[in-house]
Design a protein around this nucleic acid. Sequence first.
RNA 1: GCCCCCAUCGUCCAGCGGCCUAGGACGCCGGCCUUUCACGCCGGUAACACGGGUUCGAAUCCCGUUGGGGGUGCCA
Length: 499
Amino acid sequence: MTSSRKGSGPSRLGRLVGSYDRPVSLPRVRFAPAPTGFLHVGSARTALFNWLFARRSGGEMVLRIEDTDASLKTQAYVDAIVEPLRWLGLDWDGEPVFQSERRGLHLAAIERLLADGRAYFCDLSRAEIEQRCEEAGLPVGYHGFSRHRDVADGPGVVVRFRCDDDGATVVNDIVRGRVSFGNESLEDFVIRRGDGSPTFHLANAVDDCDMGISHVIRGEDLLNTTPRVLLLWEALGFGPPPAYAHLPLLVNAKRQKLSKRRDDVALDIYRGRGYLPEAMVNCLALLGWGPPDEVEIRPLAEIVALFDLEAVKPAPAFFDPVRLDHINSTYIKALPPEQFADAAVPFMFQPDAPKEDPDATEDARVREVAVRLAGDLQDRIDKLADVGGWVDWILSGEVRYDEKAWHKAMVKGRAAADVLAMVEARLADDDFSSAERLESIVMGVGDKLSERLGERVRSQPPVRVALTGRSAGLPLWEPMRLLGKSETLSRLHAARTRL
RNA sequence: GCCCCCAUCGUCCAGCGGCCUAGGACGCCGGCCUUUCACGCCGGUAACACGGGUUCGAAUCCCGUUGGGGGUGCCA
């Protein structure tokens, strides 16, 4: 790995020196998202790999917001990045850096390229470029039309970088090896927009140099643009460029890049469904990388210790929700009851709509249910949003019968009326202080009736349907205590009258 | 169109020339446990895209084909 650059002095920017003086011996990486209103799972994975690499190597990770496009600049957009990163537990060194605030540096670099003849002005619109292509019989593209037109600077005039027409630009990629681009396929790209703002390629080169970035770890979709940055880097005399590592794309089941339109890409969606951040991180770490010992679900600290950028696989990785469920369920099972309750309570009022600010008494009741049923619930759910479906009958104060379940247990089932009557009578004498005793009372009724009728009578199904409305669910006994004696008896009675 | 990347079970990852009759995990199927549903445990299913080389020997190296994906903006 071409890791430690031998930069001479803290900055190779010369008169563009910024504020990031530091020795370059330890790696320094950056996570550089564009603020788009939410954090994409792919971006989260990129952030994670940068973070893992930095933590593993003892280096630093900085957060740089790529907001050269003025429309991307709002506090809400920044929060939409920072907040999910915090949720995941990914921290960064120093304060976030805003590219928009470093404009002076970028413009100075543009001036220098202009002065050195490495860049020039162009006033051609998209339509004019297309027209010239057509007239010259050239394929669509720019083809350096304004190189010798001596366009003067002015409103709406852009600055383009003059690319070499021959030779090749090579990216030595840590995960892909040597990737070569023929320069003839590179066009003179825009480095300053018509409104005077620098574009991201330019800002990228300048900021990576100025901030002392040693490794650029990002998505494969940016591999094609790397030659541009490398060319700028060289033209600006920045010395040896950072090492690059282009991570495999995250794709959907149809093997397409995850997209906002088709797929659930916002990290917040997963948080809202009750995926634990630790599970999310663990899952993300396994996309494109795997630990050498094949133990996949493990604490972050171990992942940090084992992480190796050079072991990242180049093939695209399917972000599989089923796998996420499995990992999440494993993390949920491992939670101590109290912690499980903390995490689950917000999801118990309404599935898919965690309640922000529950009323205090209701909250205490819900929390008690969560704590006392923790183990049984943890075994049954993949994500916290699923919890409501198991306990709603305890919390809602009413039963909604599933007619199929009713029919099976009450109509087709043997001696349902007798079961309900006997259970109700025997329960009336109990104080509901022991779940085990409740179990033996209910089961005892079944045994008794089996003996009396000379055939197997199951007492649990009618009781379960009477209490929960459904044919399957949690073990009944602790929930019965939670439901309380009077509610239990009244539901049994209600079912009996409905027969 | 042009440029670039990728290619081991359905999926994620192991394999970096002989230890591979290809390993693990998820999923799926079957069994055990269980007077519900689950959890857990045991077992099974299933892959080196194709064709040429190189080599004593290739899933592993090279070339080609096919297939998939990405890029091709005054977005990043």
